[in-house]
Design a protein around this nucleic acid. Structure first.
Length: 592
RNA sequence: GUCCUGGUAGCUCAACCGGAAGAGCAACGGCCUUCUAAGCCGUGGGCUGGGGGUUCGAGCCCCUCCCAGGACACCA
């Protein structure tokens, strides 16, 4: 059952097309704002375009559905805002859209007619199903999203979770808005650290251990290299030597590198599978090796480079340090690969946007990188955006990969799933397929925990917090969803019965309807700001509104039209919760 | 030293491009012969780091100081 919102199928594009056709006559919350702006145009003497952005949602539902602050009018009317609000409230007469207009201090508050609101939103959700909230604004244009991008031969720690889940969510959000999202895992599979690892492997490595636990072994070697390097500075030279060999294409070294890469990638894909994530491309840094010369040439040809202390640099002006394209020993750098990748991606995808979901510690790097594109005069330079996020840190200091301090993501996921399983055993022991649900809930909790806060803020890793499933958490949203499914299993709403807008009278129902109507705005905002947290917050509010409804408005025990109306409302909430979770990369179990 | 981010309830965080300061956790008190108590209801809790400025209006914009974190050409 409920297949319309569960299995996300390829059908979405057909739906989006059909939707575009309907769009002209669709009514939405945005449309309500337009209508209000129209109503206010005459009495205020302001234009529609001026009014609409001023309209806001009052802090308290009892005040109204929308509010218009009258401060702006004070000067023109030569009257205090409060008096203007009071006067306008009196002047605005009957309107088919409005239940009432009141003034509260300097604010003019509007209450929409419940029957209109309900019929409007619910019919839309009923018609569009899982496409509710989507749009065709992307028009099939490409958005390239560079995310996750772990370093080969290093463990996948909790620190990598952020880029991975933010990027994945953005991929789904942009797809939902009609873009062709391209997820790229720009693997860190090249660079001087491979010289180090090869050095370490040659000195202390073991083939047996490598096959048994590839990443674990490589990580040990990496840590040991840095430990010994403190005492023996010559190790660094050795590392550089082997990297040079690698770049020259030395067979033996290359084979070793290839082995490390294959083993690591297999390991990473296992983790991605647990998280339910896939990429459209795994072209990492090494992919650009044979393009670097032409990349540099292209930049040099623009006449913006110069030699400095034997290195090739681009001056970027007073505010930013210069960008180093080639070291004095001839080796290239990270940014050279990024530039090369950007050229390649533009040629390949002709993107409308290129997003880089990379930590905030690399803000300067991206400034330099984008500045070079700009100085080259590329018209697509401003389509590139760094989507930075705060770092994960521990109470007792920073996480240092070099020193071997790392919390494995898999360990976190395993603990969350185990805890989830324990809770199911306690609360719902008869549940079928407990392990599957425990995975959905445990992993959902970890993902939601990361996505629910503004990405720019640093997060402190805290076992207690990540394993807390009460309050504003992923399980809270999933639980709300499962509760609805439980009701609908007993009785499904008629999908053809006429909508009875008048049947919604409880204030919990009103709040829920209004919140449902805001979903499309939340999705758009999440995309505009590249912040999945906007959707996460929206879902917390929606789930809270639903739980209040659940506790105050019996569904199955209600009679006739009221029962039917509540079933329909619950069903609409179910769809939006499931879709919202999907956009975050979280599953929505029907029971838990 | 220079630049970038953050600083909101005891703790973790919201606040829709300037508009009426809110949640969750923790604490305390209630609610399961009722559609899943991973829930709901209630109580307490604030000079939005300090000071100045712009504005009818600032948690949000500008200046300055304090605190925390990060970055700052041969790493990624």
């Amino acid at each position: 059952m409920f297949t319309d919102s569960m299995g996300y199928n390829d059908n979405i594009f057909c739906r989006l097309m059909a939707k575009a056709v309907r769009q002209a006559r669709e009514v939405s919350m945005e449309h309500f704002k337009e209508q209000l702006a129209l109503i206010l145009e005459e009495p205020t003497g302001l234009g529609r375009e001026e009014i609409q952005p001023l309209l806001e949602v009052p802090p308290n539902v009892d005040l109204g559905d929308y509010a218009f602050p009258c401060f702006r009018l004070a000067r023109a009317f030569k009257q205090p805002p409060a008096e203007i609000a009071a006067r306008l409230a009196g002047e605005l007469g009957e309107n088919p859209l409005l239940e009432r207009v009141t003034s509260a201090g300097p604010y003019l508050n509007f209450v929409l007619k419940r029957s209109v609101l309900a019929a409007d939103i619910l019919s839309r959700i009923r018609q569009e199903g899982q496409a509710y909230g989507s749009s065709s604004r992307g028009g099939g244009r490409a958005v390239v999203i560079d995310f996750s991008s772990p370093n080969i031969a290093k463990p996948f720690g909790v620190g990598h979770l952020r880029s991975t889940v933010i990027g994945h969510s953005l991929h789904r959000i942009y797809t939902f808005l009609g873009y062709r999202a391209v997820g790229i895992n720009h693997l860190g599979d090249w660079g001087t650290q491979f010289g180090k690892i090869i050095t370490a492997y040659k000195r202390w490595g073991s083939k047996g251990q490598l096959n048994r636990d590839p990443i674990g072994h490589l990580f040990q070697l990496y840590v040991r290299f840095h430990e010994e390097g403190e005492k023996n500075p010559r190790l660094d030279d050795e590392g550089r030597y082997w990297f040079k060999k690698l770049e020259e294409g030395n067979r033996e070294t290359l084979d070793l590198w290839q082995t490390f890469r294959d083993l690591s990638l297999r390991e990473f894909k296992r983790i991605y599978q647990i998280l339910g994530i896939d990429f459209d491309s795994y072209q990492g840094e090494s992919f650009y090796n044979d393009r670097l010369d032409s990349t540099i040439e292209e930049i040099v040809n623009k006449g913006i480079t110069r030699e400095s202390q034997g290195a090739l640099i681009v001056d970027l002006g007073e505010d930013i340090p210069p960008c180093l394209l080639r070291k004095s020993d001839g080796a290239t750098l990270y940014v050279t690969r990024d530039l090369s990748a950007a050229f390649y991606r533009y040629e390949t995808y002709r993107f409308a946007k290129a997003l880089y979901v990379v930590g905030a510690d690399q803000i300067l790097h991206f400034k330099q990188f984008f500045k070079v594109l700009e100085l080259m005069g590329l018209e697509w330079a401003d389509r590139c955006r760094h989507v930075p996020f705060g770092l994960v840190r521990f109470k007792d200091g920073k996480m240092s990969t070099r020193k071997g301090k790392v919390v494995l993501l898999e360990e976190v996921l395993n603990k969350a799933v185990q805890l989830s399983l324990d809770i199911i055993g306690e609360k719902n022991p008869s549940l079928a397929d407990k392990e599957r649900v425990a995975r959905q809930v445990g992993i959902g909790a970890v993902i939601f925990g990361d996505l629910s806060n503004d990405r720019i803020k640093d997060v402190e890793f805290d076992w207690e917090k990540i394993l807390d499933f009460s309050g504003e958490t992923g399980p809270y949203i999933q639980y709300s969803h499962a509760r609805i499914c439980s009701i609908l299993r007993r009785e499904a709403p008629s999908q053809t019965a006429p909508l009875q807008g008048e049947a919604y009278t409880a204030k919990e129902e009103e709040a829920l309807l209004l919140q449902l109507g805001r979903f499309p705005e939340a999705v758009e905002r999440a995309a505009d700001l590249n912040k999945p947290s906007v959707i996460a917050r929206y879902l917390v509010d929606l789930a809270r509104d639903f739980n209040q409804f659940y506790h105050h408005c019996p569904v199955l025990k209600a009679q006739g039209d009221i029962k039917q109306a509540r079933l329909l409302l619950a069903d609409a909430v179910r769809r939006v919760l499931a879709q919202g979770l999907y956009l975050l990369g979280i599953e929505a179990p029907e029971e838990m």
